[in-house]
Design a protein around this nucleic acid. Structure first.
Lengths: 339, 339
DNA sequence: CTGAAAGCGCTAACAA
DNA sequence: TTGTTAGCGCTTTCAG
């Protein structure tokens, strides 16, 4: 139960010095002005009184709030990317910052006011975070102060952007399947959005490198949901030359595939290997069979975005290159050697 | 691009009055002191300069930050209850408050420092929110200032608590099944935690009221995950007198049941009705078949908790009764008349 | 080496 | 009716 009251003046009195001395010592601003003795008394007094500078007063004085604002389109609302906010919060906390989050829930016209609200609160920096990988055109405020993009990127690269390395992720996943001896590998990819395109690129690169012919490639534009995975599986798995392995757009699509395979009496992984994407919590590891998948490093993305903003805030030059965060491949029970 | 600079002094100058007049007029504190004329000039000047009081200065002066703190054990990290934070944020925003969230991620020893950090930031009120329904013993800070509990409750009811009405929710779900003519209805319930117990209570109350005998009841302690639902279904559905309907602990358990049913060639809903719980986003509505389920009103819980805190903050008496938020039954394709 | 003083932007009590 | 003044708690310049 810390006493919530001690001010710098209290500390000064107890230590027998002036308020300014307290401030200087506690902030390490001793330009050779305070005697060693006084310094010790100040520190002791501060500890005794459990003194911490009032952040509100500090903010007013320094014109900095030690607060970052995150605007997101669906991170909070969505069940997938909460770890992004959590990673960001932890990284911020570790450096003495707190985070104000506003989720626009994809509601048009909500973004502007959200940014304004955050600016009005005098946040020191801004982060825009999206639920799915996509381009984002940063508006004025983003370019006018320390800022970063998380899981999205500025097509013109005016802002630091932190995004998952989707290409390598799906290439690695495809390689795993190839190493297991699979040849007919289908990609049930999302739709024509950025992540889907990049994942397809990784898939094709691995397939091509393995010298596979067009007949072995099979890319079906699906969607991102369970039922869409189910339907795509339904159409792909009924063909005579059905694939022996499927790379799914994400774990939900993989769930749909598993559901259809069960219905059709196709055993996974004995007759069909399935790889997901996301490593969605409480899903991938708990499916039957447990799903081999590519993890999306949301927490890390959030943490790095925060780091970028804080570095810029503390004096570094703005670095606008995109950071590609690795997506680790997690091998579980849904993949096996080709039949 | 609003000018970020105008201060009360600028407004005063432009309107030809004193700073205090500006403050009074803009805060509605005119105790008959300012001429109608001056008032209009002030408002006009404020609008012209795009003036908004600097919240940091206001905070320092008023000793209130218009900020609420939420401590949670897994809301942010977890894919399920993000809407709680989102509901809370929106409710707060609507009344001019912002929210600082700290997720302890169930890490022991993190809660104390989190509360301290929030208090240090001078939040005006505190909310403790849990991912799953459970008792929570509020520590000192919670009892010393405006606060509320979301999705958890103080066994001694010293704090307002906002929780889902689990009993009614599962009773309604059971009644739906009974209305469809089912008699042998199994409950694959979580484990011995609060939500599981309450859901079982609702189930039993509906079963008893329908005059069903012990043979028709069947309660299996399962868990909350897909694979656990799968295994429980495996054991329950192989019996000769297998149930014609299952009430699942949650949507993930229901997913496991659907997976097993598909594997075993049991058609849902023709041969087996399944009801979930949670109405988990991107899951319940997209399963195959789409899942009938009981929705957990997370957003509303968050919003009501915020309202409680703000009401207390703005002068109302603390009301410590528990608020039961209804869990609406959502009927989809996984339920049908008994075979 | 130390302390007094100014001021961040605002509100509210008090004089005029 | 209006303007002046005294802080909220802190940092930092500038005399002592």
């Amino acid at each position: 139960m810390a006493a919530r009251k001690a001010t710098a003046l209290d500390v000064a009195k107890l230590a027998g010095v002036s308020r300014s001395a307290v401030s200087m010592v506690l902030n390490g601003n001793i330009k050779g002005n305070v005697s060693k003795d006084a310094q010790e008394r100040i520190r002791a007094a501060a500890k005794e009184l459990n003194y911490l500078p009032n952040p509100v007063a500090v903010s007013l004085r320094n014109q900095r709030t030690a607060t970052l604002g995150i605007i997101t389109d669906e991170i909070v609302t969505s069940p997938f990317a909460g770890r992004l906010v959590s990673g960001a919060t932890n990284a911020a906390l570790a450096r003495g910052y707190m985070i104000l989050v506003v989720d626009t829930e994809h509601i048009p016209g909500r973004e502007g006011p959200a940014i304004e609200a955050l600016q009005h609160r005098r946040v020191d920096g801004l982060i825009y975070a999206t639920g799915s990988l996509q381009p984002y055109i940063p508006s004025g405020p983003f370019r006018a102060q320390p800022a970063a993009l998380a899981n999205c990127f500025d097509p013109e690269d005016r802002l630091p952007a932190v995004v998952p390395d989707e290409v390598t992720g799906s290439r690695r996943a495809t390689e795993l399947l190839l190493e297991l001896g699979h040849r007919r590998i289908a990609l049930l990819g999302g739709d024509d959005d950025n992540a889907a395109l990049l994942r397809e690129q990784g898939y094709r690169s691995a397939m091509d490198r393995a010298g596979l012919t067009a007949g072995d490639h099979q890319v079906i534009v699906t969607g991102w949901d369970i039922n869409q995975g189910y339907r795509a599986a339904e159409s792909v798995l009924q063909e005579p030359d059905r694939p022996t392995a499927i790379l799914a757009a994400n774990d939900r699509v993989a769930t749909g595939i598993l559901l259809y395979a069960a219905t059709a009496g196709i055993q996974v992984p004995q007759q069909l290997s399935v790889v997901g994407y996301d490593d969605q919590q409480n899903v991938a590891a708990n499916l039957v069979p447990a799903l081999t998948t590519v993890a999306l490093p949301h927490a890390e993305i959030g943490a790095i975005a925060v780091k970028r903003v804080l570095d810029e805030l503390e004096g570094s030059e703005r670095r606008t290159e995109r950071v590609l965060v690795p997506c680790p491949l997690i091998t579980r029970q849904s993949t096996a050697p080709a039949p």
